[in-house]
Design a protein around this nucleic acid. Structure first.
Length: 641
DNA sequence: CTAGGGTTAG
């Protein structure tokens, strides 16, 4: 035994950091490892990985010999901390102690290499130990390893091999593969795994069910996810969380909130993960009060320290118009991640406060945080909204040169937007021509949007031609060009677009507006009469209409058109219905109104401005791109008038 | 060996 432990004890001193002076004597060198293993298991369970490695060092120094019950825990720590250097050392300790014939040690080794992104080494362990090829757990570890290193193909071929060799497949095998189905292209594989799991009776395994549920979510097949969710008899916390965040990630905020309330009434207590999904939905919906209630609840439950939750709260407050609260949370954080910075920078960008967004970005760099792709998207968009064209171009040039972040298609579309809004349409077009990647719909769409602002019909036609090739069913582009033709009084153009839309069977995706009241989202589409207070809303609107006529001395507001819409009830703008609803129901204060799929038009802007003056009330409106503030008597936003 | 989480333009 003594002979066994000496050789690697010395080696370990070289790499396993600093060692305290050994307290043990030679006679203690034969100490049995049991108490050490118990301690290591405890630490591993509690997630104290760093400590468990320290204990392992102490164990070696004390002279206790590690055995097959030691290595799974230490290897797991290396995997969790991603320290391949110590992992490799442990591998040699395993070999020297003759533990390579233990299934648990082999799986831990394979998994350690995989989690350290060394799938080659993981495969070597598997390949060099004939025992592995007989064991389900080893196949599982290697399959999961490949999948985690985004090599789904290798995972699948190993899966085929194990079936060919007659190695039995279990629920863990299935989970390993299903967790790699991360986009719609993987859907058919995911569904055949679902079939396999039904046939093999893994249906009773909650982890397998949850994994399949999140597979459907990631494949953007939210209906199938819901169907599976409904069919799971013993839903656990993770099941609920997977479904709630599934709705949140797919932009179905109302569904997420409904399910959250259902979860609460069914007696399951939410945890931090639940609230992350709920807050993300509140952010997308602009559901300010629900968000505030959730924030209160988080602090009551003592979850306020969670970094994920703080970032979600920053995002929620910023997107619900409460930038001050978002900033306060951000400033109070003692540990800020790149995501925290991205959320707050995006918040300022959205509110048109590009100067502050840029200041924050520079401060982030000074703090020593390395920027990534998403934060550049955010800061470029902030520059674009605030008209900081040159600042934005500076960042675009610096991102690869100074930070090694390769511009992706999203960055190009931001810069096209940046140049386009500044009126530099030719530069934007040249940038598209010089892009190293094929432009996508968003890039041409950004150019098209810029053409609309600067009324350049010729270039718009070119951009439209390109964008429609790439996204033939995206209705927004047809509407955009059609509106440009209307503005330019080009009737034949309008008819041509309408014909195209009819031929392609595209129905107008109705924009909608909604407002949160008493914890519920009240949604309106144009001409909507389905709301229970519809009559009151319409009489409120005609009262407002009359008042506006008196106030609007310059006759900028098209009251004829609005009168016609009001009298027929056809086509009354959704935001007007929402505003009238707000006046009927909510107490005096700031209301946040969200407009989806639409950008606020001039008429709409003027209407809300007038109403906010008439009733001397603040409104915060968030449309497809940004915030608009209406502060009662004085309107701060002069974008249109 | 296995299941759920924050940020990303138009």
């Amino acid at each position: 035994m003594i002979r066994l432990l000496r050789p690697f004890q010395n080696k370990s001193r070289l790499v396993l950091h600093r060692c305290e002076a050994p307290k043990t004597t030679a006679t203690q060198a034969t100490t049995i490892p049991v108490p050490w293993n118990t301690r290591l298991r405890e630490l591993s369970k509690q997630g104290h990985y760093q400590q468990s490695l320290t204990v392992y060092r102490k164990m070696l120094r004390s002279g206790a010999a590690p055995n097959a019950f030691t290595f799974p825990f230490t290897l797991k720590s290396c995997a969790a901390l991603s320290i391949p250097i110590i992992g490799t050392q442990l591998h040699s300790h395993v070999t020297k102690t003759g533990c390579l014939c233990e299934p648990f040690v082999l799986t831990a080794l394979i998994s350690m290499y995989a989690k350290c992104l060394l799938s080659e080494d993981a495969y070597k362990v598997f390949d060099e130990n004939p025992l592995c090829k007989k064991l389900t757990v080893c196949y599982n570890a290697l399959i999961a390893g490949y999948v985690q290193n985004s090599n789904l193909l290798n995972g699948v071929s190993l899966f085929r091999e194990m079936r060919r060799m007659g190695v039995s497949v279990n629920a863990v095998t299935m989970v390993g593969l299903a967790s790699g189905c991360t986009n719609p292209l993987h859907m058919s594989l995911g569904m055949s795994l679902h079939c396999l799991s039904l046939k093999s009776g893994f249906g009773n395994d909650l982890a397998a069910e949850n994994c399949l549920l999140s597979m459907y979510v990631k494949c953007e097949s939210i209906q199938l996810a819901r169907k599976l969710f409904d069919d799971i008899p013993g839903k656990g916390l993770i099941t609920w969380n997977a479904m709630i965040s599934g709705y949140a990630q797919n932009g179905l905020g109302t569904h997420a909130l409904d399910l959250y309330y259902e979860m609460e009434s069914s007696g399951i207590s939410p945890n931090a993960v639940t609230f992350v999904g709920v807050l993300s939905s509140c952010a997308n919906l602009g559901a300010r009060r629900i968000g505030q209630e959730v924030e209160q609840k988080i602090s009551n439950l003592g979850l306020g320290f969670n970094l994920f939750l703080k970032n979600a709260l920053i995002n929620m407050h910023a997107r619900c118009g409460n930038l001050a609260r978002a900033r306060a949370i951000f400033d109070e954080m003692h540990e800020k991640s790149l995501v925290s910075w991205t959320a707050i920078i995006g918040g300022y960008g959205m509110h048109g406060l590009g100067d502050i967004a840029v200041e924050l970005f520079d401060e982030m760099i000074r703090t020593g945080i390395l920027p990534d792709g998403p934060v550049f998207v955010t800061v470029l968009s902030a520059c674009s909204h605030a008209g900081l064209t040159n600042k934005g171009l500076g960042y675009f040039a610096a991102m690869q040169r100074d930070y090694g972040v390769k511009p992706s298609i999203e960055h190009y579309s931001c810069v096209v937007d940046l140049l386009g809004r500044a009126g530099r349409l030719e530069d934007a077009r040249k940038l598209i021509d010089s892009m190293p990647v094929e432009p996508d719909g968003a890039v041409w769409g950004a150019l098209l949007g810029a053409c609309k602002i600067h009324k350049n019909v010729d270039l718009a036609e070119l951009a439209f031609h390109e964008v429609v090739k790439l996204e033939p069913t995206n209705i927004g582009y047809y509407v955009l060009l059609s509106n440009m033709y209307t503005e330019a009084e080009n009737l034949s153009g309008v008819l041509r677009i309408r014909l195209m839309m009819r031929e392609r069977k595209l129905k107008k995706d109705p924009g909608c507006s909604y407002i949160e009241f008493k914890g519920k989202i009240h949604l309106f589409v144009a001409g909507d009469r389905s709301h229970s207070q519809s009559d009151e809303i319409h009489s409120m609107l005609s009262k407002l209409q009359d008042l506006i006529k008196e106030l609007d001395v310059t006759k900028k507001y098209n009251d004829e058109k609005s009168d016609r819409e009001l009298s027929t009830g056809v086509g009354v703008h959704s935001e007007r219905l929402a505003i009238a609803f707000a006046l009927l129901n909510t107490e005096i204060g700031v209301d946040i109104l969200v407009i989806k799929n639409l950008r606020m038009c001039g008429d709409c802007h003027l209407f809300i401005k007038m109403v906010s003056k008439i009733v001397d009330r603040q409104f915060v409106v968030r449309d497809a791109t940004r915030f608009h503030h209406f502060r009662g008597g004085a309107c701060s936003c002069n974008d249109y008038w």
